[in-house]
């Protein structure tokens, strides 16, 4: 529980930084230009270096986790996704994993039961919430592209329109706003309520959720309550990417909080568990074929070791073998 409080306080502290910096010290230039640029640089360089550090280590063995029948005898139906034996199988497996969270879909809870000992109950809720959460975030990011692209690609507009499917209030309350809030609340509550997950949760686990929650909440506030001059914001956003920075004038401190938290999230990305977004592509238990008996796999650092050779071995047991009429190597040579 103390970790939860640490994380909460830390998030509050982060929120206070821009409030103080912009609201009291008036450091608009710093918070609208220096912070986003440095955050983005850290994000870009950090992510690339992180991936490079992963791939600078070789994967010495082919260790796919086989979740289905191997390809062996022709008349046995093999599972080419669960136990892939070629690139197509791998591609399908990774596709299902990344787009549909397939492993998570398999999840089931193990419950103690007085008379039956164990009960396995399906736990699709977690999968559903996770996938909704991730796709909502993706759509939200996509929606924000309207601020960074001029002219706005029609696909972004289309997505925004689908997101505003239901005509509720003005500006329309978006589906992803609601879904992402519900999902974050679920993920947070789960960490607090489910004792197993509470036990394993670290400060950073809570912190990431609080951080995302505050990003989402400030975003919602900006849309529905503390509105900003969106023209100005777009000018600012475009300016950033065209290296022609522009300080927005008609935005409130809520905007700076949002911007700062997003910047922080980006900068924090390469150093946190959020790198799972990239790491999932590299997972050796999922992205390798189950064909290690068919095709020889090479380990770049495979080094010779001291083994016990047959000759050494026979030297020790020769007499015994001869007595027992077991053919021996040296003896044969002698005769």
């Amino acid at each position: 529980m103390i970790r939860l409080i640490y994380a909460f306080v830390l998030t509050l502290f982060l929120i206070l930084i821009p409030l103080f910096g912009v609201g009291i010290l008036g450091l608009t230039r710093f918070f609208s230009i220096v912070i986003p640029y440095s955050a983005f640089l850290i994000f870009l360089a950090g992510s690339i270096l992180r991936v490079l550090s992963w791939v600078s280590s070789p994967q010495p063995f082919k260790i796919p986790l086989t979740a289905g029948q191997q390809r062996s005898l022709q008349w046995i139906k093999s599972s080419y996704i669960e136990s892939p034996y070629n690139k197509i199988g791998i591609f399908m497996r990774m596709l299902l994993e990344i787009l549909f969270f397939r492993s998570l879909l398999k999840n089931e809870k193990t419950n103690p039961h007085v008379s039956k000992w164990l009960l396995f109950t399906s736990n699709k809720r977690f999968w559903l919430m996770s996938i909704l959460f991730h796709y909502s975030l993706l759509i939200i990011v996509f929606r924000h592209l309207k601020l960074f692209f001029e002219p706005i690609p029609s696909i972004v507009n289309l997505l925004s329109r689908i997101d505003a499917l239901f005509e509720i209030s003005i500006p329309t309350i978006l589906l992803t706003e609601i879904i992402v809030l519900v999902c974050i609340a679920y993920l947070l509550l789960r960490r607090i309520v489910v004792s197993q997950v509470r036990y394993i949760s670290l400060t950073s686990d809570y912190f990431v959720l609080f951080l995302l929650l505050s990003v989402v909440l400030t975003g919602i506030l900006l849309r529905h309550l503390f509105r900003v001059d969106i023209m100005d914001v777009k000018r600012f956003a475009l300016g950033l990417f065209l290296f022609n920075p522009y300080i927005p004038h008609f935005v409130g401190s809520c905007f700076y909080v949002h911007l700062f938290l997003v910047s922080f999230l980006f900068a924090y990305f390469p150093f946190s568990k959020l790198v799972h977004a990239g790491g999932v592509f590299l997972s050796p238990t999922r992205n390798l074929e189950n064909n290690s008996r068919t095709i020889r796999y090479l380990n770049p650092w495979n080094y010779p070791v001291k083994t016990r050779t047959y000759d050494e071995w026979e030297d020790e047991f020769r007499e015994m073998m001869k007595e027992a009429n077991i053919p021996v190597e040296k003896e044969d040579r002698k005769i």
Binding site: L44, V51, S56, Q59, L145, F148, F149, F281
Partner: peptide, 28 residues
């Protein structure tokens, strides 16, 4: 940096990543 393994795939992935995150710049 030390030797990079799976160079082709990794670099492709990283290039896609960089292109995506820098898309506002080149698009505009």
């Amino acid at each position: 940096m030390k030797k990079i393994y799976d160079k082709g795939k990794t670099l492709t992935g990283l290039i896609i990543f960089v292109v995506l995150v820098s898309s506002p710049t080149w698009y505009n």
